[in-house]
Design a protein around this nucleic acid. Structure first.
Lengths: 216, 216
DNA sequence: GTCTATAGTTGGATAGAC
DNA sequence: GTCTATCCAACTATAGAC
């Protein structure tokens, strides 16, 4: 019906694909279903995208971009190391649990990418994005709490992603929010144990302690 | 060609399904492909299984059963806490990395189960099995090294599964064995920090230390 | 028990009218 | 740019011969 420039049409279709795939799974995101969701006819999709794979790739790219932007915006307030870590974990976890479908889709995309050569780059881009985002978050924690992690941020970021992935997957399976949150906060205490206070005014010493938070 | 009792035929078909799905992905495990892999014709599969879902459920069940049995057999030798933990992690990791396809299939099964009502129970059985297996392994570590974990085994088992899942997924994506192994051993040191020595001969004290291994 | 043949669906992709 | 109509491939499932 409506005549739109191709770029806008693509945006609309990507959003429709995201809606269908989040709600009904990646296999349900057929070209037909996406067209129906967007309220256009089959031909339109093939006009905007060369084939189904290009649509899926575009959808995946949209997800990772959104994730990255989201992680950039979150600068935690400075209220002591432990609180900063806990608050960051809570924010992260809230974001996950309020979008079950999207979270599940993320794993479906990863496995699909690992099986199908046409989606080759999707998984690695996904994870490069998540590792970068996690590193950014950790850097934010360092700055907000005035501490330094005694483990390289890159290594720590990988661990964060792995742990969040693992607990998220378990939560998707058994739906136990309490256990997931408990586990993540347990990991938070481990993170805390890898922090050392910054020698800000030349007062504190660099010691690898697992001590409680110190006021900033 | 060959006339086999139904039970054996089912075993054979399950094995064929496992082979196809591990090699080419869960979507490639069509009834046709499984029949071809097993060297029988299409009708035979439908004679042995009511429908495709029953075949997939049987396949999933075979996987979790195998996982459970495998974890039962591994009793680590007693060579000090740290070495026992490291050895257990190495054994676990070796098992994972030498079966990339099966590991990936495991995640595909989980996500499929979470999307399709017909496979409803598959994911939760999968994880109940893994949690039980992890708990068993932790119990084995306790016995072999003469220590006790200061965290409930059930909680710790969940964490083990989450961490292993997370690192495995990352490894599937980027193929970096070194980083995966490094991360898992880092987690091993965390595990070590939650152990307390048993008061075996009334000599040791119960202390929540992160000390090195003590000779048994 | 095992095979071939076929019915019935679904989905990707294209052609061509408007 | 958008729509309808259509082709073609792949799949599940069943019927019926052997």
């Amino acid at each position: 019906m409506n005549r739109l420039p191709v770029a806008e049409r693509r945006e609309q279709l990507i959003e429709a694909a995201l809606a269908v795939a989040s709600r009904d799974g990646i296999d349900a995101a057929t070209v037909r279903a996406v067209a129906a969701e967007a309220g256009v006819s089959l031909g339109v999709v093939h006009y905007c995208f060369q084939d189904k794979d290009e649509l899926l790739r575009a959808m995946a790219h949209a997800i990772t971009s959104a994730n990255l932007e989201r992680s950039m915006g979150e600068l935690p307030p400075d209220v002591g190391v432990a609180a900063v870590i806990d608050g960051t974990i809570d924010a992260l976890w809230d974001g996950i649990k309020e979008s079950r479908g999207a979270q599940l889709l993320s794993y479906e995309l990863t496995t699909s990418s690992l099986r199908h050569p046409e989606l080759n780059q999707v998984a690695i881009e996904q994870y490069r994005g998540q590792w970068a985002a996690a590193e950014q978050v950790l850097r934010g924690v360092e700055q907000a709490a005035g501490v330094t992690f005694s483990v390289p941020l890159e290594t720590l970021a990988r661990t964060v992603v792995a742990v969040v992935d693992g607990y998220s997957l378990a939560w998707l399976v058994d739906g136990d929010e309490a256990k997931a949150r408990e586990g993540m906060h347990g990991f938070g205490r481990f993170l805390l144990s890898t922090t050392v206070a910054n020698p800000r005014d030349g007062l504190e010493q660099l010691l690898d302690t697992g001590d409680e938070a110190l006021p900033a």
